[in-house]
Every structure is written in structure tokens, then in C-alpha cells.
């Protein structure tokens, strides 16, 4: 009874936030509604007792991906009227694509395909660890697909980094390894110079003259590294 109520609350929240995400005008609000829909999905997965997937969804999408989205969306000045142009014109094609996608998902991802007819689903005890089961499945039965997917992701990361590298680096950057090895003699040079005042201005009063003669002017030169 309570579980069903919670399920319907979160499903309604999920549909509402997903709908608002694509209709709301402000892109920052759209990103926030997407976050809310991730949360609702995560809550539904928790109801299924799939705690690993539920929390991973929050960690990965809400905690990392969406933060970067927000970062970008907040700094962009998106012209909304240009984006909204031709909504009616593209609606039939877009609608057909959406319906066909929904249909194919219903056909492929349904309970029957996963052997989950309602009589075979059973509830596990409190000591059943969803995380452990997933780990066992991933590292035994699906080891090669898992490793290959990881390698593909790594290639994508390296490719993304390479795309941002354009030629040799022109900006200045600090090299802390060199900085810590620097001695004071590398930065400062103390030069002893003869006093200029004593020769050029002899007609000053004798007291100041004698003081000037005693002191040696020390010029400190800074050398930038």
C-alpha cells in the first residue's frame, strides 16, 4: 500500500519534471528539472531495491554530469526565441520519431524480455547485496563487454583531450618542480657600487658628506625568471 503510494508519487514527479524540463523557458530551470527527474528515477530504483544503481545514478549524473551542464548553461547566453522558431513546422516529424522510439523501447525493454513475468519476481532478504550481484555479473559473465566498454571510454577521454590541444603551448605557466629548487642567489644579485653623491656634490655641509662617504650604496637588482 505505502510502497505503491510512494511509487505513484515519484512516477508523477518524474513525468512532471521531465515534461517541465523540455517546456520551461529558462535553460537553468530546465537543467534543474532534469536533475529532479534523475532523483525521481533514483527513488523508483530504490523501491526496486536496486540501491547500487539508484545511488550510482545520483553520483554520476547528478553529482558530476549535471554540475558540468549547469556550469555551461549558466555561462551561455542562449537566445531562446531562435531555438523556438519552427516548433510547429517540425512537430509532425519530431512527434513521429518520438512515437516510434517509444514503441521500439516498449517492444525491446519490457518485462517479458528480461524474464520478469510477475510470478517469477521474488523479494530477497535484508542481507542480499545488490552491489555484490552486479559485481559478480560484470566481472565474470560480462567481463569482456565490460572491459571493452571501459577501453572505448578511455579512448574517448584521450580523444577529447587531444582535440583541445592546438599546437605548442603559448601561455605562460608555472613549473613548481623548478620553483622549489630555486636558491636566493638565482633571484637576487647584490651589486656593490661606489657612492655617486660624494664626488658630484662637494659643496654640501661636511656632516652629511662624511655620512655619505661611510655608507656604501647597495643596489638590489631583481631578475625575473
Amino acid at each position: 500500500m505505502i510502497e505503491q503510494t510512494v511509487f505513484y508519487i515519484f512516477s508523477a514527479l518524474l513525468l512532471l519534471s521531465a515534461g517541465l524540463m523540455i517546456t520551461v523557458r529558462n535553460p537553468v530551470f530546465a537543467a534543474l528539472f532534469l536533475i529532479l527527474s534523475f532523483f525521481s528515477t533514483s527513488a523508483i530504483w530504490l523501491l526496486l531495491e536496486a540501491e547500487f544503481l539508484a545511488i550510482t545514478l545520483v553520483v554520476v549524473y547528478v553529482g558530476a554530469v549535471m554540475i558540468l551542464f549547469m556550469f555551461v548553461v549558466m555561462m551561455l547566453d542562449i537566445n531562446l526565441s531562435a531555438l523556438r522558431e519552427g516548433f510547429a513546422r517540425y512537430l509532425p516529424i519530431g512527434g513521429m520519431v518520438a512515437i516510434s522510439m517509444a514503441l521500439s523501447m516498449v517492444l525491446v525493454i519490457n518485462a517479458g524480455e528480461f524474464g520478469l513475468a510477475s510470478d517469477t519476481v521474488q523479494r530477497h532478504g535484508a542481507d542480499y547485496s545488490n552491489t555484490k550481484e552486479l559485481g559478480v555479473a560484470l566481472y565474470t559473465h560480462y567481463l569482456y563487454p565490460f572491459e571493452i566498454a571501459g577501453a572505448i571510454l578511455l579512448v574517448a577521454i584521450i580523444a577529447a583531450i587531444t582535440l583541445t590541444m592546438r599546437g605548442p603551448r603559448s601561455s605562460k605557466a608555472q613549473k613548481p618542480g623548478e620553483q622549489v629548487l630555486v636558491k636566493s642567489t638565482d633571484r637576487l644579485r647584490i651589486i656593490k657600487m661606489k657612492s655617486e653623491g660624494a664626488d658630484s656634490e662637494p659643496e654640501k655641509d661636511p656632516l652629511a658628506e662624511s655620512k655619505l662617504a661611510q655608507s656604501e650604496d647597495i643596489t638590489v637588482k631583481k631578475e625575473s625568471l
Partner: peptide, 19 residues
């Protein structure tokens, strides 16, 4: 069971208040 993950998820959420 997933207490450690839960903690990790919640500490990563605190940034939303700031942003």
C-alpha cells in the same frame, strides 16, 4: 548495504547549494 556510496552521493550534492 550501500552506505559508503550513499555518503559519496550526498557529499557530491552539497555543491548544488553553492552553484
Amino acid at each position: 548495504n550501500a552506505g559508503l556510496l550513499y555518503v559519496l552521493a550526498l557529499t557530491s550534492l552539497a555543491v548544488y547549494g553553492v552553484i
